[in-house]
Design a protein around this nucleic acid. Structure first.
Length: 814
RNA sequence: GGGUGAUUAGCUCAGUUGGUUAGAGCGUACGGUUCACAUCCGUAAGGUCGCAGGUUCGAGUCCUGCAUCACCCACCA
């Protein structure tokens, strides 16, 4: 009696870890700078350390990954590093939250130390997840944007650009968050709808009439430097150019400007320093004085006419002023409204405009160059170029690169307190932190004053826009040192085109007079069902990447991620992951079946190619054609189309048709016969090609099957040091083999191709017939008629035996 | 208000330079297998391709307008 059959299955959870360890130990992804192959360099996005990784990361990082793997197989010397952007405000926020501390009320050195500690833990966590996904990154090329090398580079670039006069310092109005106590970039501001009150406030004219202005910010009244009306507004033509008094007695002039909207409020608006960007524009345009009433801590300064609000917060000050205005009967109307307020995305505090000294990089006079540079780069998908152009054309400000924060690259500058000379230290001393410089330096220019250290740090985009340079000067580049610029590919998300892509291109133009990369691969976002965006804030709900990998395997989730087109937002669909899981099982089982019929197949069989049956030649030919088509899609970054090509070929052509047909010969023909050996040859070659072409998507199961071998008891095992395919192909990993290119020109004549086609349609017809008659498979059809007479008979001749087997018919008549 | 993308079967999506009866997976219905497949295979039902015009011998595909959704930007006194 036969022993009960133990079904064996592929234990993905276990084996994926096994192969990951193998790749690491065997240095499969190691970059070799002395290779003679053509270079393909990837400017991997260094993830910002600001919380846990989520499915969105898996989605976007999978995309560069599949390209890296394809390019390696296609014969390129791929340089695929990983970096970490572990400084700046988002990181500080994470550390402050996690450790329950505040950067601004503890010694700087302590805070930085804790930041490094925490970010190191996160680096570990991130790396582990990337490795568990099977990313083919060379981890020896890991960098961090806060490492002393990166800091040195950033400070050197700062000095370089300062000396080129591309960087300048200026007293300017910047977006400022009182809570975080720093200026912020435009990109860090988001809209939020808030309840507010629209007040009508009476200003008195010289003739004692009232001029009514409307505002939601009455607390800024002491900062009012002018009133504006529209030049075409009939109601106010008389007052333009005159002087009015605020309820608190300040005299200001009434000016006309077409930025005022006639319909809004009363049509008269006060200009305060600073309520919004229009105020900034007006102050500049009309050379108005500044009246600063808010301090950097978000509290009111001393105001002569309103001593009671000094040191009060904005909200408290507003209450006091509204009460006072009511007493003065200056409020003629008030109505509650909802309106959008710009708030800091990290803390929700409304952003104020504050005039401070900031450092800027000139961008506005580089607009034309930026636009030209954008056109030199190949954008994938191409429409993303428009977004870039839209943003660059609309730029209004130079790039503010200074931040009054703690954990970042210090701005390497000193200012003389006597002559205002700006002193930048020698770059041999970089990285330096001027703040912790103990000795007092005297000004080299005037010899009198002391040098006051700059307290700010650089915007983290300053360093991350230098990732092509960080890669270019990486210590182990050896003979490729400083020869990696420009890089081949920058993969990144569409949300940071206006920051990372734009700033990197700007740096490239300043430093190298060249674009930083030849191609840009822009990925979309992954969304949860109801259109909810997954971000570090929302987490990704119930779907934690670690869990999905554990429950479904890395190959499965990777496969799911490759279902969406590049650049498009996609929904996370667990069905897709399950589909991936099924494909893994199918590849495993097909391999098991094939190995069981190749026990007597050896190197000799490969060397002495038998006279191939037409059908066998067809399936081999198809595998090369599909490989070639997939390669074209990969080159266009259309990995999802490559996936579809594979699916159709593997599942339908190979498994459902070819394997089912060829079973007839495998079961019935003599092992020594040409017909049998032809089938073996085709199985070997085609399955190997299949493993190769799906390996960029599914690196684990393909490695598993490449190393699999059949045991005497008809079970298969797979180990690093053995394997049927591995020993015959003499490569230690499927990932070191070459993308299938037909060396022997296996082809089919037009007649033969027609024959295969006819055979497949005949099979389909026979199946239809069987289904309509509800015939079981063990019922033999005595005679099956094919339309087409002599021609059909001729075409089908080479396949007749195979055909009769698969449709279970005794004979075919024409 | 400006920009970009999307709108195709119940769901998630493909549809290459305009060319016969618009495809896949999942789901549904029915049947067959269990000697690669805790399964797998087959067959079928299901779509006026967001709406309205236009170009053309011919439009899911090109043009115009509109609608809806998403993202980005501007406005937010």
């Amino acid at each position: 009696m036969e022993s009960s059959k133990v079904k064996e299955t592929y234990n993905a959870t276990e084996k994926e870890v096994y192969w990951q360890k193998f790749w690491e130990e065997a240095n499969i992804n190691k970059f070799n700078p002395s290779s003679s192959k053509e270079l393909f360099t990837i400017d991997t996005p260094p993830p910002t350390i600001s919380g846990a990784l989520h499915l969105g990361h898996i989605y976007s990082y999978s995309q560069a990954e599949v390209i890296a793997r394809f390019r390696r197989l296609a014969g390129f010397n791929v340089r695929y590093p990983m970096g970490f952007d572990n400084n700046g405000l988002p990181t500080e926020r994470l550390v402050e939250k996690e450790r329950n501390i505040q950067g601004h009320n503890m010694p700087l050195a302590d805070f930085v130390k804790i930041c490094l500690e925490v970010t190191d833990q996160y680096k570990e966590k991130y790396s582990r997840l990337w490795k568990s996904l099977g990313l083919s990154v060379d981890w020896d090329l890991e960098y961090s944007t806060i490492s002393s090398e990166s800091q040195k580079l950033a400070q050197t670039v700062f000095k370089e650009l300062f000396e080129k006069r591309a960087i300048y310092q200026k007293e300017a109005v910047a977006l400022y968050c009182h809570r975080c106590r720093t200026s912020v970039a435009q990109a860090e501001v988001e809209d939020q709808e808030r309840d507010s009150v629209f007040y009508d406030i009476a200003f008195s004219e010289e003739n004692n009439d009232n001029l009514i202005i409307a505002t939601t910010r009455p607390e800024l009244l002491p900062a009012c430097v002018a009133v504006f009306v529209h030049p075409d507004d009939q109601r106010y033509t008389g007052v333009v150019g005159k002087t009015v008094k605020t309820p608190f007695g300040k005299k200001i002039s009434v000016l006309a400007d077409d930025k005022v909207s006639i319909e809004k409020g009363t049509g008269a608006v006060m200009c305060c320093t600073y309520g919004d960007e229009t105020d900034v524009y007006w102050v500049r345009q009309y050379n108005l004085p500044e009246r600063i009433i808010l301090g950097k801590n978000g509290k009111f300064l001393e105001i002569a006419e309103l001593p009671e609000i000094s040191s009060k917060s904005i909200v408290e000050g507003r209450k006091i002023i509204v009460a006072k205005l009511r007493k003065l009967n200056a409020i003629t109307d008030e109505r509650p409204i909802k309106h959008n307020v710009g708030v800091h995305e990290r803390c929700g505090t409304p952003i104020e405009l504050l005039s401070t000294k900031q450092w800027f990089i000139k961008m506005l006079d580089k607009k034309e160059d930026l636009l030209k540079a954008g056109q030199k780069i190949k954008w994938h998908p191409s429409f993303m170029l428009k977004r870039y152009e839209e943003w660059v054309s609309g730029l209004k400000w130079d790039w503010c690169i200074s931040r009054e924060r703690f954990f970042g690259v210090p701005i390497p500058a000193y200012t003389c307190d006597s002559c205002d000379h700006i002193y930048l230290p020698n770059e041999n001393n970089f990285p330096i932190d001027p703040k912790i410089q103990t000795e007092v330096l005297s000004c080299p220019k005037c010899q009198k004053g002391n040098l006051i250290p700059e307290k700010g740090v650089l915007d983290t985009w300053f360093t991350s826009s230098l990732t092509p340079d960080i890669n270019n000067i990486f210590p182990t580049n050896n003979q490729l040192a400083e020869k990696l610029y420009p890089m081949s590919l920058r993969p990144q998300g569409h949300d940071i085109i206006r920051t990372w892509a734009v700033y990197s291109i700007l740096m490239g133009l300043y430093r190298h007079q060249e674009i930083p990369w030849r191609e840009l691969m822009i990925s979309g976002h992954i969304l949860l069902r109801k259109g909810e965006k997954i971000s570090k804030k929302t987490g990704g709900g119930q779907f934690k990447p670690e869990d999905v990998i554990k429950n479904h395997s890395a190959d499965a989730i990777r496969y799911a991620m490759y279902g969406a087109s590049l650049g498009r937002d996609a929904f996370y669909d667990e069905q897709e992951v399950k589909k991936g899981k099924k494909l893994v099982v199918k590849i495993y089982n097909a391999g098991k079946f094939i190995l069981s019929h190749l026990t007597d197949f050896s190197k000799d069989n490969i060397a002495n190619q038998p006279e191939l049956e037409t059908l066998d030649r067809w399936i081999i030919y198809r595998s090369y054609v599909v490989a070639q088509k997939m390669a074209k899609e990969f080159e266009k970054y259309e990995y999802n189309k490559a996936r579809i090509l594979f699916e159709n070929f593997f599942w339908s052509d190979f498994c459902d048709n070819y394997l089912e047909i060829v079973k007839g010969r495998l079961w019935n023909e003599e092992k020594s016969s040409e017909k049998y050996q032809s089938a073996q040859y085709a199985l070997y070659l085609t399955y190997l090609n299949i493993l190769k072409i799906i390996s960029p998507f599914m690196p684990h199961i393909t490695e598993e099957m490449y190393h699999a071998k059949l045991l005497a008891n008809n079970r298969i095992i797979s180990q690093t040091d053995s394997g049927f395919f591995a020993s015959l192909e003499e490569q230690t990993s499927i990932h070191l083999t070459a993308w299938p290119i037909d060396q022997q020109n296996i082809s089919l004549t037009e007649e033969e191709l027609l024959g295969v086609e006819l055979m497949l349609t005949t099979i389909a017809e026979a199946r239809k017939y069987r289904a309509s008659q509800q015939l079981a498979m063990n019922v033999i059809i005595p005679s099956f008629t094919v339309n087409g007479k002599k021609k059909a008979e001729l075409l089908l001749k080479p396949f007749l035996a195979d055909l009769l087997f698969v449709i279970k018919a005794e004979k075919v008549v024409f």
